[in-house]
């Protein structure tokens, strides 16, 4: 496959996703270079899945997209449903949270993978089937030759998720979107699946958009992170910088709420820090910074004017960003 290495895997500009007067994504921009890995983090309802579905052209009925999504030399926003459908699984593909509802329950898992291969590569049946077994072995699936004949309900959740990943990776897409791929899995299985996804994405040189509300997963898998709150990106930058030295108060709150084994009192008296309150509903967003009712540093300015992301590499949409190490806090 010939790709222009200067061209990003995806470039999203001013993406707005809405349905009538409800707007779930309110002007989101980011770029993932070829082979890059971006994490998208935020509480549930912040618009992560809607962003992903817009990229895939899979929004629910009634929802539409504005802005631009540049990928593989075209703007996906202006593409026909048919053109989008011919790309899914080929140049970009997606792994969903719940593999049981995204796999066809009445088709054998092997057939589901090989038909993706045949549709996009024109390979004959035998070749596609051989590739399927090979791919399933790469996913560490036991007894791949027999497992191809299983139906989705006959295998475990972790195995189903690996089948989904195999399907998403089958055609070496430029971009893989994984939306909470391990949230439904047991912790021990979660780590195996992440490790596999990590290796498989790397081997193929695909770019990854990893959507999760789990910060450790982003720290382990991504080089960039975008933090989403109420439909907007409020902080974006290199994972190492954002997680070590967050500038937005919401990012700080998320990091502080994380349970870790490092600071647990021996007598069980530890308390977790939590962000008070909850994500505002879409139809009743506060004016100004949407985080202001929950923010310890909010001022009148925050309640009146909406902060925008700046232009630096590490950016936070905040009127009073937390200090960088070695810098005095902005007023």
């Amino acid at each position: 496959m010939q790709t222009n290495s200067a061209r990003p895997a995806i470039e999203v500009r001013d993406l707005v996703v809405g349905n009538g007067d409800v707007t779930a994504v309110r002007g989101v921009s980011f770029t993932i270079p070829q082979g890059g890995r971006m994490g998208l983090v935020g509480e549930s309802g912040s618009g992560k899945s809607m962003t992903a579905l817009a990229l895939m052209g899979l929004l629910p009925m009634g929802w539409s997209t504005r802005g631009s999504i540049l990928h593989d030399g075209v703007d996906l926003v202006t593409q026909s449903d048919r053109a989008l459908s011919s790309r899914r699984g080929r140049t970009l593909s997606m792994v969903f949270q719940d593999p049981l509802s995204s796999l066809n329950p009445v088709r054998r898992v092997g057939d589901q993978i090989s038909s993706v291969i045949r549709r996009h590569t024109g390979a004959d049946k035998r070749t596609a089937e051989a590739q399927t077994v090979e791919l399933m072995k790469q996913m560490n699936l036991p007894r791949a030759e027999q497992l191809v004949r299983a139906y989705p309900h006959e295998i475990s959740g972790g195995q189903r998720q690996r089948i989904m990943i195999a399907m998403a990776l089958a055609c070496y897409p430029q971009l893989i979107i994984a939306d909470e791929p391990t949230t439904a899995l047991d912790v021990t299985v979660q780590k195996q699946v992440l490790r596999l996804l990590n290796g498989a994405v790397r081997d193929r040189g695909s770019a990854l958009l990893m959507i999760t509300h789990d910060l450790p997963i982003i720290a382990a898998m991504c080089d960039t992170v975008a933090v989403m709150y109420a439909g907007r990106i409020v902080e974006i930058g290199p994972v190492q910088e954002v997680f070590r030295n967050p500038r937005h108060h919401y990012t700080r709150g998320l990091l502080d709420s994380q349970p870790t084994m490092d600071n647990i009192a021996l007598d069980g008296s530890s308390r977790l820090v939590s962000i008070p309150g909850m994500v505002p509903p879409l139809h009743a967003l506060p004016t100004g910074c949407a985080f202001n009712p929950r923010c310890p540093a909010a001022t009148d300015k925050c309640r009146e004017q909406m902060p925008e992301l700046g232009a630096e590499a590490l950016r936070a949409a905040c009127w009073h960003p937390l200090a960088k190490v070695g810098e005095v806090a902005a007023q």
């Binding site: 780590k191 450790p216 870790t260």
Partner: peptide, 19 residues
């Protein structure tokens, strides 16, 4: 041991040895 090994943390992720 398996449960302890499965714990992911932001720190181990940033250190590059979580997986």
């Amino acid at each position: 041991k398996a449960l302890v090994g499965a714990i992911l943390s932001v720190e181990s992720g940033l250190a590059g040895n979580a997986l």
